[in-house]
Computed example of a mutant assay.
Amino acid sequence: MNSIAEQLNEVRKQISAAASAAQREASDITLIAVSKTKPIAAIQDAYAAGQRHFGENYVQEAVDKASELKQFDDIVWHFIGPLQSNKTAAVAETADWVHSVDREKIARRLAQQRPASKPPLNVLIQVNIDAEDTKSGVAPSAVGELASFIAKQPELRLRGLMAIPAAGANSAMRKTSFQAMQGLFSQLQSQYPSVDTLSMGMSDDLDLAILYGATMVRIGTAIFGARAR
């Protein structure tokens, strides 16, 4: 089995090749190492290999890891999972980014609970681009209204959009989803100067996501191996 450092290097090479194929700069794409369910030692190995952006899906796990690794003050923590309103305080106090804001109530609570000692919380709107009944996210038609609310909160900074295409979607279906997200992102960029981030693409579709404008890719399995749960 390759080490985490070796696997990280392979993912970085893949990002670079995908960026080149899309006539983009690899430096414009941020790699988020999705460390959910992985032990602290795995994160430390990735950190030693130069990784700084880490993504967590579960609130308590994110809080515990951030606390245990607080000596590494240049780690950037991304909360990427579904967020319930009764858990917003912990995320507002811990995370640097939240990718999964999908309703005004969540945005309001994050704003109210963001510590004054911290900079504005970077926020992405999660879009349910394939209209899945079981997936979080706003409909594309609702992005504008939620973006307007977030942009008015001084404790938050609207940075862009996030999406996860339907599980099991083939390449053609994902292409359609990513194209639609690229269009939504361009529209939002034209309205808000702070918008610069399109979070989409995982281990099995990062090339396609980069082709359609992803500026953040969320990679877990290709770096850390299969999840424990």
Results as ranks from 00 to 15, higher is better:
residue 114 R to I: 00
residue 17 A to F: 12
residue 220 G to S: 01
residue 94 T to D: 04
residue 78 H to N: 07
residue 138 V to F: 15
residue 111 A to M: 01
residue 138 V to S: 14
residue 101 V to I: 09
residue 192 Y to C: 03
residue 205 D to W: 02
residue 193 P to C: 05
residue 109 R to A: 06
residue 13 K to I: 13
residue 8 L to N: 02
residue 226 A to H: 11
residue 115 P to H: 04
residue 20 S to A: 15
residue 6 E to R: 07
residue 146 L to W: 13
residue 176 T to L: 15
residue 216 M to I: 15
residue 169 A to H: 08
residue 65 K to W: 07
residue 206 L to H: 03
residue 216 M to T: 15
residue 138 V to Y: 05
residue 181 M to G: 04
residue 219 I to D: 01
residue 150 I to T: 08
residue 129 I to C: 01
residue 155 E to I: 00
residue 70 K to Q: 13
residue 190 S to N: 13
residue 147 A to S: 11
residue 76 V to M: 11
residue 23 Q to W: 05
residue 52 R to S: 09
residue 58 Y to V: 09
residue 171 S to K: 12
residue 89 A to T: 11
residue 48 A to N: 14
residue 49 A to V: 06
residue 54 F to L: 09
residue 174 R to G: 04
residue 7 Q to A: 06
residue 201 G to F: 02
residue 115 P to Q: 03
residue 76 V to D: 00
residue 143 V to K: 04
residue 25 E to D: 13
residue 203 S to Q: 02
residue 58 Y to I: 08
residue 157 R to Q: 10
residue 23 Q to E: 11
residue 2 N to V: 00
residue 106 I to S: 00
residue 172 A to S: 09
residue 177 S to I: 04
residue 227 R to K: 12
residue 95 A to H: 02
residue 93 E to P: 01
residue 160 G to L: 12
residue 12 R to I: 06
residue 55 G to Q: 09
residue 74 D to Q: 04
residue 101 V to R: 00
residue 207 D to T: 09
residue 70 K to C: 12
residue 185 F to P: 01
residue 71 Q to K: 10
residue 194 S to H: 03
residue 185 F to V: 15
residue 102 D to K: 04
residue 138 V to T: 10
residue 199 S to W: 00
residue 179 Q to I: 14
residue 48 A to F: 10
residue 30 T to R: 14
residue 25 E to Q: 12
residue 76 V to R: 03
residue 33 A to R: 02
residue 22 A to Y: 06
residue 32 I to R: 02
residue 84 Q to R: 06
residue 77 W to N: 04
residue 44 Q to R: 13
residue 158 L to T: 07
residue 198 L to W: 11
residue 190 S to H: 08
residue 9 N to S: 14
residue 152 K to W: 04
residue 125 I to M: 02
residue 227 R to I: 09
residue 171 S to H: 10
residue 104 E to S: 12
residue 100 S to M: 01
residue 114 R to A: 04
residue 41 A to F: 01
residue 210 I to W: 03
residue 89 A to R: 15
residue 21 A to W: 06
residue 208 L to E: 00
residue 26 A to V: 15
residue 38 K to E: 11
residue 66 A to N: 05
residue 59 V to A: 03
residue 35 S to F: 08
residue 186 S to V: 05
residue 193 P to I: 13
residue 86 N to D: 10
residue 186 S to W: 00
residue 5 A to G: 05
residue 61 E to T: 03
residue 138 V to K: 12
residue 190 S to I: 14
